[in-house]
Design a protein around this nucleic acid. Structure first.
Length: 214
DNA sequence: ATACCGATTGCCT
DNA sequence: GGCAATCGGTATA
């Protein structure tokens, strides 16, 4: 009984570190494994690329002009999920950070697939490579490179926006912490405002980082 | 009610 | 490197 209580406590406190500032959290999040339990299927991968959006002080943030029905999840506390629909066809997944009201979010841009590659291949509508060499030894970079592809492979939909990390989407810490020298940063992708901030972070030389390469 | 546009992707030259 | 596809959210009337 005590064990169950401890597990529940752990489950509840596991994500409190995400209530720190997004720029503190972002490099720490690299290397974490993101697991998805959606439609009874388990998929996931190691986070290798992400971008910080800094709420009301960031002109490129969806929350810059204040809260709207769509962006309401961004204003929740760190550990919540914000999902948005983009260009009429893509779904993008964010992890909210910071205290409630700050509207900080981290856009997940690329994973290195670790679990459920066959399921992700199906969700993406891709056909498996026929040669054994390309299928099992190295995961397909088309699965989870780029925010739209990543969300599609994991089965993430708008319905998840506003929920909390936990049973549907979960984070598993890396076995060994990343060295500071293996992290690179640069300008964010696809924005028209605040292009100067180097708030895109990635694991150096990781082949699953989306284009343009950092 | 209507117009504009985007935290993207993939195909074309 | 250029550009079309496609539609919900948001602002404007």
């Amino acid at each position: 009984m005590l064990i169950v209580k401890d597990m529940l406590d752990l489950h509840h406190t596991n994500y409190h570190w995400l209530e720190q500032d997004a720029l503190t959290v972002a490099p720490l999040l690299l290397g974490y494994e993101l697991l998805s339990y959606i439609d009874g299927r388990k998929t996931g991968g190691r986070i290798v690329e992400l971008e910080v959006y800094h709420g009301h002080v960031d002109p490129a943030s969806h929350a810059f002009k204040g809260q709207t029905p769509r962006t309401a999840p961004m204003f929740k506390s760190g550990g919540h999920i914000y999902v948005y629909f983009s260009y009429g066809m893509h779904t993008c997944l964010n992890i909210v950070t910071g205290p409630a009201g700050e509207a900080q979010a981290i856009l997940l841009r690329a994973l290195e697939p670790t679990i459920g590659m066959d399921i992700m291949t199906t969700r993406r509508g891709l056909t498996r490579p026929t040669t054994a060499a390309t299928s099992s030894s190295h995961p397909d970079t088309r699965l989870t490179s780029g925010p739209g592809n990543l969300a599609k492979s994991l089965g993430v939909t708008l319905a998840l926006s506003g929920t909390h990390l936990g049973s549907t989407l979960a984070l598993i810490p890396p076995t060994a912490p990343l060295s500071m020298s293996s992290i690179v940063s640069g300008p964010r992708v696809g924005i028209s405002k605040a292009k100067d901030h180097p708030w895109r972070f990635a694991i150096k030389d990781n082949p699953f980082v989306s284009r343009p390469r950092l």
